[in-house]
């Protein structure tokens, strides 16, 4: 998926003051490109992810997916876009606590109307090395295992864009490295476009391009 952001601006009210987070932010991503966004805390990385996923509306600017403008999409249109074309990976995994690993991974397919998504989810978990943890609940999994389940869930429905927020931020170095290997293997194997927000130089170095978010805009590093 080609991603095009033009002149995005976003401010929030903090008390009576307006806090300008993004200001004229622009970005072009080609299909299959993996871009890292780095920046200090509070620089607006999470806001950028929220805008890309349609959770927040920009005050100004354009968002285009494959040349299709998403600026005036309604909430159900954004929801449909997320369902079909977006995958999310969070720093704290955020698995649904009452679903097993395989059920968590199968969930996006289920929401897309698949009758029996679990074989596919099992296959995905096997690829992620979790074939023996299929029926474990999140609290029975380690951090690394939980993040691998989260990656499986983000990729199972072959989304055209993957957004990841500090995907190894909660993991120790060794586990983080393993998870990262899996994530990049999957992304590159499927030619998926991805935007990864990170503080980690190691993660950033593995991406095709690194941008830094500073003063509300993205700058090449």
């Amino acid at each position: 998926m080609n991603v095009q952001l033009q002149g995005l601006a976003k401010s929030f009210l903090q008390g009576e003051n307006s806090l300008r987070i993004l200001h004229g932010l622009s970005l072009d991503m080609k299909s299959g490109e993996i871009v890292a966004v780095v920046g200090e805390s509070g620089s607006g990385k999470s806001t950028l992810l929220s805008l890309l996923a349609g959770f927040e509306r920009p005050d100004a600017g354009l968002i285009r997916w494959d040349a299709q403008a998403a600026g005036d999409w309604t909430e159900p249109q954004w929801a449909a876009f997320r369902k079909e074309s977006l995958g999310f990976v969070f720093q704290n995994y955020y698995l649904i606590p009452y679903l097993t690993a395989v059920e968590n991974v199968a969930l996006p397919l289920r929401l897309l109307g698949h009758d029996d998504p679990e074989p596919e989810a099992r296959k995905m978990l096997s690829e992620l090395g979790l074939e023996k943890r299929l029926h474990h609940l999140p609290h029975q999994l380690s951090g690394g295992e939980s993040q691998r389940v989260a990656i499986g869930r983000a990729l199972i429905h072959s989304p055209r864009l993957v957004l990841a927020d500090e995907p190894t931020g909660s993991l120790d170095a060794r586990t983080g490295q393993q998870v990262l290997d899996l994530l990049f293997r999957q992304l590159e194997g499927r030619q998926q476009t991805a935007l990864i927000v990170t503080h980690s130089q190691e993660v950033a170095q593995r991406c095709h391009r690194i941008l830094t978010l500073k003063q509300g805009q993205l700058w090449p590093v």
Binding site: A53, F55, E75, P76, W78, A79, A80, F81, R82, K83, E84, L86, F88, Y94, L95, I96, P97, Y98, L107, P108, L111, L112, R153
Partner: peptide
């Protein structure tokens, strides 16, 4: 309170607020 996380995930996966 317990539903906050599952709700956030379901929205990320594609459920609209109304759904």
């Amino acid at each position: 309170t317990l539903e906050r996380t599952p709700s956030a995930l379901l929205k990320c996966i594609g459920l609209s607020s109304l759904e």
